[in-house]
Simulated assay, not measured.
Amino acid sequence: MSIATLTITRNCLVFLLLLSSFNVICLAVDFPLRDKYPNVPVYSAAQLKQDFSKVIIIDVRTKFEYSVVRMNGAKHISVAKMTFVEQLKVVRTRKSNKKIIFYCNGNTCSKSYTAVTKAKKAGFNNVYAYDAGIFAWVKQYPELASLLGQSPVHQFAIIKKKTLQAKLLDFRQFQQAASISNSLVIDIRDPRQRKLSIGLVDTKIPLDKLTNFLKRGTWKNRDLLIYDNVGRQVTWLQYLLMAHGYTRYHFLEKGARGTVSAPLIN
């Protein structure tokens, strides 16, 4: 083998090693929670598209989030409920080998990993996390998703990032807006998330119940100031507010957790 050939071979090997390292780094950035859940097998979007009609798909988010946007045919079992495993047994027996794919909001949401962990602990096999989440799925396969009951999901119906950002207030701005007489502060967190107070007088209404108020047009003449736990659920709430003609509303950026130096909790 000539020196030139050896040089080319060596350079190729170095390139492949660098490429491999780059892919590992990209994977860690794209899916930051995978290292935390090394025993959770995952499903890619391409795999799920191919097996879509052969697997059981379960949305493990809140009922409200499921009602706004979901994969077509997905069943809903909230992983936060104490009855999660019992409800799972109704969907599929533990002895069955049919694959179950869990999904939640996206690559920084831990619910799909938690669902797999709980299912495996309860004796279920062939359980996976589609950890790219519903955001990615809707963009990639809109014909296999529903938004507010409509399928396929048209790209123009997806709220742009700048539209959400225009409705976000930092905590100081939120406090100032709350001091206006016509404002109404609404805490949409689950009861278990309310240990942290942001120090404002508010109305506590979980998302699932808030839906009925919005459908009736309640508070359309008020300036609504809404906050959740970490600033993620308001993303879905905005779809409902816009669908029912609400314009006078703002959200607390990063939610209640963003008002203190504390780790974010899904």
Score class of each variant (00 low, 15 high):
K63Y: 01
L17C: 11
T117H: 13
I186G: 07
S53Y: 05
K75F: 10
I226H: 05
Y246D: 02
V55M: 07
K54S: 08
D170W: 00
T83K: 02
I205C: 14
F251C: 07
R222L: 09
S183G: 09
R194P: 14
G199T: 06
M71W: 01
V55W: 01
L241D: 11
R257K: 05
G123S: 03
A178M: 13
S183Y: 00
K98G: 10
A256V: 06
I159Q: 08
F102K: 00
S261Y: 01
T259D: 01
A46I: 02
V40F: 07
D202S: 13
K220R: 11
V230F: 14
R61S: 09
E65T: 09
V55Y: 01
F156L: 06
T5C: 12
A119S: 12
H244L: 10
V68I: 07
R222S: 11
L196T: 07
R257V: 05
N221C: 13
I77G: 00
S261C: 01
A45E: 01
Q176I: 00
S67Q: 07
I77V: 14
T259I: 02
T108W: 04
V14T: 13
G245C: 08
S151R: 15
Y239C: 15
L13W: 12
I180C: 10
N126Y: 03
R232V: 11
K54G: 07
I25V: 15
